[in-house]
Design a binder for these strands. Structure first.
Lengths: 173, 173
DNA sequence: TATTGTTATACTCTATAACTATA
DNA sequence: TATAGTTATAGAGTATAACAATA
């Protein structure tokens, strides 16, 4: 992905026409990139980190169910689960009632990995929010939450999984 | 990119540990995706929209200069400029003093395209900010600007161009 | 016949490095 | 020898659809 695009701003005192959307895209890409680096430091890709978290939140789901939740194609989960299973972090348990599917669970090592990722996420949050005062952080957090809710974004699901036609770069003005 | 990764949150009343970073990534990807759709409606990819804007802001620069500004590889611009040139939107003018490079300029049609993209960007901004009141928009815009400045993000350059050591791509293990 | 998980194939995007033409 | 731009090749990531096992 390439994607420059900047907001349209006037040198004059004019109102900011396209500030929020662009700043969100810019900061979002920055935050995602920074998280990717932290995840890599502890041995995971962002997709792996996301999948581990989802399994830890709701153990026992089938790959199809998880794919549906993420808006991803079922085939996309195969390689991902394969890798985590080979590393001994995730377990595929045959469903005795319907042997066509598996129930995904974390192993003990998988839970340990989640703890490590949780610390990385906390450090990441602290670093991203660093430029703001505690009061400003609360303000920003509230505004972003309201915005996310207003657009129907599900709390915890990153759009990165979406397989819709839409490109994902910015661009602008 | 895949990338679920969600924040660590407690069901309990506990403090939000990883709210801002995740919300930024989530909303940023959403905003970028929405812009991509709007850009596609008027015939452009986000990278093309970004490049057009950069040329309109600072005409006459060489491909190398633009690549440097974007943090992109020079070779990455070739196909992009090719496409826009074939559509009659961008012009490569030989530099008479140093004939190794070109000076990039927009044609009249290119300026028309920028006007169309500007309207798409304005509509995009309005749609993204819709859930917030005017006062909240100002608050959010200010907070995001402060955050971007605090992290050294350049005012109109989207990180999507960066080609640095893969943040969210490579695997591990 | 429908569904779960899997595999095979193709396509897109981009990085890397070789190549040309100028300097 | 160094630089601007180009081209060629390869690699990662992902969508698509065909497939086997089970229902």
């Amino acid at each position: 992905m390439l994607t420059v695009a900047a907001p349209g701003r006037r040198d004059a005192p004019g109102p900011k026409e396209t500030e929020i959307a662009f700043l969100l895209a810019q900061l979002g890409a920055f935050a995602a990139g920074q998280f990717g680096e932290r995840a890599a430091e502890v041995g995971f890709t962002p997709p792996e980190a996301g999948l581990l978290r989802l399994i830890s939140r709701a153990p026992g789901q089938s790959q199809q169910q998880i794919a549906a939740q993420l808006g991803a194609r079922p085939s996309r989960l195969v390689a991902l689960v394969d890798g985590l299973e080979q590393r001994g972090l995730v377990e595929r348990r045959r469903n005795t009632e319907d042997r066509r599917n598996y129930a995904l669970h974390l192993t003990g090592a998988g839970r340990d990995a989640m703890a490590v990722l949780g610390q990385a996420a906390a450090a990441h949050e602290a670093a991203i929010a660093a430029p703001l005062s505690p009061a400003q952080r609360r303000q920003l957090s509230d505004l972003l939450a309201q915005l996310a809710a207003g657009h129907g974004l599900r709390p915890g699901i990153h759009p990165g999984y979406r397989h819709l036609p839409g490109p994902d770069g910015p661009g602008r003005d």
